[in-house]
Nucleic acid binder design. Structure first.
Length: 199
DNA sequence: TAAAAGATCGACT
DNA sequence: GTCGATCTTTTAA
């Protein structure tokens, strides 16, 4: 079963299965501990909501690719495309534990403790050395590889909650993380988030 | 400890 | 011209 076939399922189904997976780029490898599902056309929180644009084109391609975008002009955030082809599903890689290339990751983030090296999507992208040029990389054949876990994280260790920092659709509990893992990032609600508390 | 603000630039309208 | 699936530093309790 190919990587793309394993990822050819709805984002909400694939997201928890990515916990414990390892993303490797050069010397650095990160074990994923926190992800978020983005459903695509029906999800106001997704970049794909409203149809294809120059930025989100990768989301409308096949599963098993890396979707990278620039956040706040500074940080590269990474997603894995999932679901059916032309169905713009994706899973945001929110946080992880650096399991290889610790010296390289430390050099890229000199002011971080080891725990914080990839604790947050912007930090994760920085630790791995991602750039916008990495958008669209095939994770089965390219320089960046995704290794799914031999044994999935048990469902009893997976926790869910609302996605972090979104203004739209901020109440959907589509964030998944490994319970009690120290590298999971803290939840922050968007200051102007829409939803129950926004009125 | 929590909240606020500044940084910074490609994508979008 | 405005905005953001963020991070860091500063300021206030």
């Amino acid at each position: 079963m190919s990587l793309a076939e394993q990822l050819a399922a709805p984002p909400l189904e694939v997201a928890p299965r990515l916990l414990g997976a390892v993303l490797r780029y050069g010397d650095v490898a990160v074990r994923l501990t926190e992800v978020e599902a983005y459903a695509g056309a029906t999800d106001p929180g997704s970049h794909a909501f409203g149809g294809p644009t120059r930025r989100n084109g990768t989301m409308f391609g096949p599963a098993g690719r890396l979707y990278c975008y620039l956040s706040h002009g500074i940080h590269i955030c990474a997603n894995i495309t999932v679901g059916e082809e032309h169905g713009p599903g994706a899973v945001l890689l929110r946080a992880g534990e650096v399991v290889a290339g610790l010296d390289v990751a430390r050099a890229r983030r000199p002011r971080s403790t080891d725990r914080d090296l990839a604790r947050g999507p912007g930090r994760l992208g920085q630790a791995l050395g991602l750039s916008l040029a990495d958008d669209g990389t095939d994770l089965a054949t390219g320089p960046i590889r995704l290794e799914l876990p031999d044994t999935p994280v048990p469902v009893t260790a997976v926790r869910t909650g609302p996605r972090t920092g979104l203004r739209r659709a901020s109440d959907r509990p589509w964030r998944f993380w490994i319970d009690a893992d120290p590298t999971v990032s803290p939840y922050r609600r968007h200051p102007r988030a829409e939803g129950p508390e926004a009125g």
